[in-house]
Amino acid sequence: MGPETLSHVLRQLPVPQDARLLVGPHTGDDAAVYVLDEETALIVTVDFFTPVVDDPYTFGQIAAANALSDVYAMGGRPLLCLNLVGFPTCLPVEVLGEILRGGCDKVAEAGAILAGGHTLEDDEPKYGLAAVGLVHPEGLWRNSTARAGDALILTKPVGTGVINTAAKADMAPPEVVAAAIELMRTLNAAACDALRGARVNACTDVTGFGLLGHAAEMAEASGVTLVLRAEAIPVLEGARELGAMGMFPAGAYRNRDWVKGRLAAGGVDDTDLLILCDPQTSGGLLASLPPDHAALALARLSERGVTAKVIGEVVPRRQAALELVP
């Protein structure tokens, strides 16, 4: 669902009032966070979707990596997971077995426990996780605390949405699809671990609203303006070309329409803008850190094999929440 529609529906719900709820629904953050004691806060999140790839085992891995990403985006460590499954009666049950095996392996890789789940009959397969993680309340990364002067780091390239759409149309070269799959099933665990060694002021993960959508949410929740340099933003090989051939998912256009009212973009062409609004599956972390800490974080990310880039900076709030420069 697009950000516009979602926020409209959510506005109608009461805002929960509890001092122990550190992160609730109103800042559009990745997960809910609840303090247990001075040392411990609980991260709770849920995410599931329909298959983005043909292979069931790979789909399971991707869906699990995507769900766990919300825990990493809050700076936490995954602890417990539950499967959420929708499955049609007309498909062989072996397919379901493969999806769950992929999810189970990914949860194990994250060092968490898969403790159960819930399955229901559905017209098409859906899979994901409800995940619980732990974080020290002082080490919690919100999306609403970016500060002017910060540098912005992105830990994965964008473009998985347009490549997945092109794969459905049989228009994506196999090596392009393979690179996107590899990226989607990569946990944000190493990126999170690397960033923990630096002072992170704010963090979110890039998923359905696209890079610009999540960046705009961070800017608005933090009361600052994020300035992104289009050229510095890493894009998956082949994604731009496929976008220019009309392979953008509808979500990219929805995100662009929502972002447009919050964005000042001079000299960036429409295809590039759409790539940056492309909805991501299991995308990277977008972290906001003081510049010296950003340098430290980049070194730590590189040590762990994560290709991360500085893609922009945070300035005091200007007219638009988001500025995109070529």
């Binding site: 220019a244 051939m245 009309g246 953008f248 509808a250 990219a252 256009y253 329409d257 295809t271």
Partner: peptide, 16 residues
Amino acid sequence: DNEAARENVTRFARSQ
């Protein structure tokens, strides 16, 4: 019948 399809089909045709 929607903006995304209009832009995508237009992009595709022009790219060819």
